[in-house]
Design a binder for these strands. Sequence first.
DNA 1: GAGTTTGAAACT
DNA 2: CAGTTTCAAACTC
Length: 621
Amino acid sequence: MEKSEGGDSFPPNKGQSEVVVSSTVGTGVDFPAKKLARQLDFTVFGQSPAAAVTAVTEQSQKIQPLVMTTSGTQIVPVKLTPVQRPQLQPPPQPQQHMVLMPMKQTAVPPTHPSIRPPKPESPRARPRQSASEVKDGTPKKQKQCNCKHSRCLKLYCECFASGVYCDGCNCNNCHNNVENEPARREAVEATLERNPHAFRPKIASSPHGARDNKEETGDGLVLAKHNKGCHCKKSGCLKKYCECFQANILCSENCKCMDCKNFEGSEERQALFHGDHANNMAYLQQAANAAITGAIGSSGYGSPPVNRKRKSQELFFASTIKDPVHRHGQLQQGNHIKSSVLPSLSSSPGPCVGNATTVGPSKFTYRSLLEDLIQPQDLKELCSVLVVYSGEAAKMLADEKDASKKQAEGQTEASLASSTQERVQNQKDSGSEKDMLDCCSSGDQGEKISMEESSLDGADVSKRRPMSPGTLALMCDESDTMFAAAITSPNDLATLGCNTSSQLPHGQGMTETYAEQERIVLTKFRDCLNRLVTLGEIKEKKCSSMVRGIDFVDQKDMIGNGFTTTEMRNQHDSFNNGVSNSPLPQPRTTQMFSSVATTANNNALPKVHRPDENGDVKPTI
DNA sequence: GAGTTTGAAACT
DNA sequence: CAGTTTCAAACTC
């Protein structure tokens, strides 16, 4: 098997087309490739060239011929996608893959545009800083070695081990370049002679390569094994000295390490994990984003690998409680039902839930920063307010139109007739407002706040009684299909509209009213969302500052169900209170709602009372 | 930035 | 295969 994988045939033989030589562990998680360069995967020979090509990133700035084969195949080192760095390393970085390039029966190493000029002695640049490390999430250049005595022709040299020429490295007496290709080739052969697997990936044991072997569990955990295993003695396998740790994998039975702490459940490992994340704002932001977008799981947010090795220590599930993130996830599980009723605004949907319910105790998921901030009743009230706004807008427009119409025609009509019409109109207005409030109250009474239910409600209501365009607009996402199916003719549309709209004499007026209603509703809704964003940012900052406090015990009250700091609690309450008349300065959440409510006709806003979470009845709208 | 520590690679 | 040395990255100060 290995003979055919290319590792033994470095240069490989029988390469016929451009294929990816290494897929390594490019899982997308953020950690520097570093020594993982030696995880070059020769096991994927035979993969489709298309897949191979797509696997190569544009960062293949260092595409260089590496080894000439006797069978017309050339291994070309290429930079590849970032490899996952242990949870401690936030940013991704390019990794190197090797691509077999078809040769043209020439023993001369083909030149490549990206081949840099020979560099006998590289000037110092950033010593000991991987060029491929990234800062601020921006991928940087490939790692640069600092070899001094190996001429970059031994596996000590990461460039050499990666199968790439040194490029911009800080090495001395470098022979890992095109000008020293003969010596380089000789070194490769010698290396392969010593160890036929020298250029094979270190991480992964599957014949399909590292990628296949590094299973991701959905939350960033990587299941993989170091082929040879580490032999750490003093680092506890919790430093980058350890290749397993560096590869973001747990030590396995292949390892011969001493005092290993790189296993799932290791308190030290988790403590390290926590501490690093606590100081890493990027992770917080990433988690927040993941929660919001639902892009949770495989690579968005580093997490400890699953247990692969339990030497002398048992799993400490309880220890994960120390982990704010873990606890977060656990609480998320417990809180899922509650949060799931707000799929669009609250926690992230599927992935989060799936992970939380299917993975082991050390897995964690992410919650929206707004999860505990927005309650179902909040949404209900928001919808109610918007519906009221819609009705008010329609009413005002109708009044204006009516007034202008009367001004135009009133000159010639009897004052009695005019006043009669006005009375009728007012009655209609009242009726429309009443209808709209009925719509709202119907929603309230139903207590069906979940999106799916509200959608059904909307469909039912639309059959029973007219709905304002504002209401329909609020339901557009959920009931588009039903709404479209229900409206089979313009008459239906008119029927669906609230009476306020139907009272308008002309379709044109109705359209304008609808437009105005929609504009108002959407504007207010946008304002609410903007404020939610602000609140989320506030919460994030708060979370971050507390996480930085190192004292994770205190974070219990911050993350998860207990995330109700005074500020956020107030915000939440104010959210519920809406346009409460509290003399105290209103938190931002209050402003979010009050801005909606106060800009409307205050006299038209109904007073709705409902018990809050604590059973207290408070005025809301 | 210099010095130390560490563990893989190389060597015996 | 085991022990030692070399080496360069990781780490510390």
